[in-house]
Structure formats: structure tokens, C-alpha cells
Nucleic acid binder design. Structure first.
Lengths: 224, 224
DNA sequence: ACCTGAACACCGTTCAAGT
DNA sequence: ACCTGAACACCGTTCAAGT
């Protein structure tokens, strides 16, 4: 009875790999990958840092698990949709996931030791191109082009020193003022005539570039 | 005389920002960004780690300098070439630079505090689009699309667990053997029928995707 | 089976002290 | 002006010891 009450007061839910990974994702979302230390993660889990090693081989294994968690959040391309619609939807979902977890843009576990969510996701994307009439070779081209674009865009977006339109305008004005205009005339023009225009948001570029790539893939599929 | 000889035996060239950055780039090229520690860098410069702070504000400042160094290695788009040729050449040069310095794919200083080489490079790229008949707005689209693609491709390439064709074949065979084929049929097909084919090299995808983007930009420029 | 405390070999960075 | 030694507040990870 007494011990039951004590357990209720100090819940100390059983630790496991999933809970460790989930807490680590929260920590990295809030402060970036460099804010994720084993000691800090232990604090958030009400446990000493060393206990984490009972559920995760080491920090690298932890980060691999985190990356797979992010891949699990990406909506799989739907079998019902036409290939272009399906890939477009999952690309938007992919970019949204990377925007929620900016640290994930630099991790890229998929090359070395992909987790189950990553494998399943890749399989479905490849299958969408194949069933959309792409040859095996052209599927490889398509997969590489689309994912390169998404990763690169997410990385550029993450490294911008602003996020809201107001911040953007303020930062752009400062940068423009610091810019020697004779030295960088085109950069100055782009900043003054485009970035500083009301309603500018770098995020809007995503769909423009994405559709450019998808349209290009469509005509590639139908030629040769 | 004696001191002159001593100076010859122990050259101890005067340290400066450029020499510090150059040594740091070598270190990061060899072992990645995590191999770059101030103590190790000091060793390579025959100096205590703390001396480095006389030439660099802190490690972040050092890495910013390194990123600008890499941008300086990228061939500027030539004024004589037609925009597509000029951007194509500089994109290949950009990707080569990122392949030489894989750590730079994850740095992206340009957003927050671009160095002089970065600014000059961006100005020339923007100018190439403008002189090639792109409106200011379409120049922004083009710049974003091309650089997103290049960054993303370089990141994917860097994270592959193989580089030579022999390694690729060996790794792909292992991965294919580990793959449950019923669970990931399309991934298995792509690996067996494409990646394992003799002559496969992921790097070859670069130009295919790049030309896709460039052709898309050309038709975007000429419509609306 | 899981958690802990102490310890090891590292980090980046400061500061007073040297030349 | 530049370099150094000692020190501080951290890291990831090990290992023996606890329950």
C-alpha cells in the first residue's frame, strides 16, 4: 500500500527506446542538435545520463532513431493518387517535417543505416514512380532529383536568420544598409525590389521549385 | 646569427587568420567537422590551442571563415557565356567544391553572416540570371531552385556509405541481402536492376537533375 | 533487468601571466 | 602584439556497484 502510493507520487514510467527518442526529438527541436546532450536528456527523463545507455547503444544510435522517427511523420504517397499528385503531397509533407525538426536536415541516416520507417517510406516513393510509368532508371533520376531539392530547400530555409515576414523585412533592411551597393549591385537589387516587398516569404519558393522539378520529370518520363 | 639559424630550424611562421582557416579546412576535410577541435588545430599549427583565439573570435567565427573559403573556390559564372552555360558551369564547380569539403554542406553560413567571397559569388549568380532575361522575381525563383538542388544533392552524396563503384556494388549487395524483399519490393528492384548494374555511380545523377532544373527555368523565364 | 556514482579522456573558452 | 599554463564548466562513455 505504502509502496503503491509512493509509485503514484513518483510515477517514474518505465523507460524504453521510444520514450528516449521522443524526448531527444523534443530537446533537439527546441535547441538544435547541439543542445542535445546525454546529461540534459537524462534530466528530462528524470534519470541519470548513464541510464540512457540501457536503451540506446550510444549517441549516434540515438540520432539514427530520431531521424527514423522524423521519416515516420512524413505522409506516405497515396496509392489512389496519380504519381504527380502523390509525390507532390508527400514532398510537401516531407518539407513540413523538416521544418518542424530542422536538425534533421543535417542528419541523413538513410544512407548508412536506414531505420524501418525510412525504408518503408523510400519503398513507397519508388513504387509511386514505377507505377506512374517511370522505368527503373528514370525512377532513380526522379527520386534523386526530388529528394535533393527538398533536402536542399529545407536546409536553406533553416539557415535563414529570420522566419516571420516582419523579421525578414527587418533583417533584409539591415543587410541592405550594410551592403556596399556598387560592389554587389544585383544582390542589392534583389533585396530592395523583391525581398523587401510586402508579403515576401522565402517559404513560398518551395512549391515553385517543386513544380518545376515535377514538370521536368513528367516530360523526362515521356521522352527518349 | 645563432638566432637566425634557430629561426630557420624552427620556422614558426607568423600565424594569421588565413593560415588558421586553411589548416582548419584541411583538418575538416580529413576527418569531418567533429575532428576539428581547437586543441588539435593548435597542434597542426605548432601552437597552443589558446593562441588561435588571437586570430579568430571563437569556433563559430572560424567555421564561418572556412565556409567563405569554400565559396571562394567556386568558379564564378563567366560574363561571356549564355546564362544557362554560365550557371551550369558554376553549378558543377559548386558541387565539386562541396565534394572536396563535405563538411561544408551542413554549414550554410550565407544565411546568417556571409563572408566577402560568398557575397561576391551570390551577386554574380544573380547578375547572370538578370542579364539572361530573368525578371527580379524569376531570378529569386531560379536562384532558390538551383542552389537547393545543389546543396541537397551534395548532402545526399556525402551521406552515402560508399564512393567508388566497387564499394557501391559491395554495399548494395549487402543491403539487398538484408532487405526483406516482400516488404520493400520496389527498393529491392531498384537496387538489383539499377544500383548493382556495372557502371552505376550515384554521382552521374547530378547532371541529369541539374539539366532538368535548368531546362525548367528556361521555360519558366519564357512564360507568364 | 535496469539504474547509479565515480571516473576517464576529452571539449571550448577565460584569464592572468609571460615575452 | 602574440603566446602560454592553469583552470572552469562542460562533454560522451566505461565500469563496478547497487536494487
Amino acid at each position: 500500500m505504502a509502496s503503491a502510493r509512493k509509485a503514484a507520487v513518483e510515477p517514474r514510467i518505465r523507460l524504453n527506446r521510444e520514450r528516449v527518442i521522443a524526448a531527444a526529438v523534443l530537446l533537439a527541436d527546441a535547441g538544435g542538435l547541439e543542445a542535445l546532450t546525454m546529461r540534459r536528456l537524462g534530466e528530462h527523463l528524470n534519470v541519470e545520463a548513464m541510464s540512457i545507455y540501457n536503451h540506446v547503444a550510444n549517441k549516434e544510435d540515438l540520432i539514427t532513431g530520431m531521424a527514423d522517427e522524423v521519416f515516420g511523420e512524413i505522409g506516405l504517397p497515396s496509392h489512389g493518387d496519380e504519381w504527380k499528385t502523390a509525390i507532390r503531397k508527400r514532398s510537401i509533407s516531407f518539407r513540413d517535417a523538416l521544418a518542424r525538426h530542422p536538425w534533421a536536415t543535417t542528419v541523413r541516416d538513410s544512407g548508412t543505416n536506414p531505420g524501418p520507417a525510412t525504408l518503408r517510406h523510400h519503398d513507397r516513393v519508388i513504387g509511386t514512380f514505377r507505377n506512374g510509368g517511370f522505368s527503373v532508371e528514370k525512377t532513380a533520376h526522379a527520386f534523386s532529383a526530388v529528394d535533393s531539392y527538398i533536402y536542399g530547400f529545407a536546409m536553406q530555409e533553416k539557415s535563414l536568420p529570420f522566419s516571420t515576414p516582419e523579421e525578414t523585412a527587418a533583417m533584409a533592411a539591415i543587410m541592405l544598409a550594410q551592403l556596399p551597393p556598387n560592389e554587389y549591385p544585383y544582390l542589392a537589387e534583389l533585396t530592395a525590389d523583391h525581398v523587401l516587398k510586402p508579403g515576401y516569404s522565402y517559404g513560398d519558393e518551395f512549391l515553385i521549385g517543386l513544380d518545376l522539378v515535377l514538370d521536368g520529370l513528367e516530360s523526362m518520363r515521356d521522352t527518349d
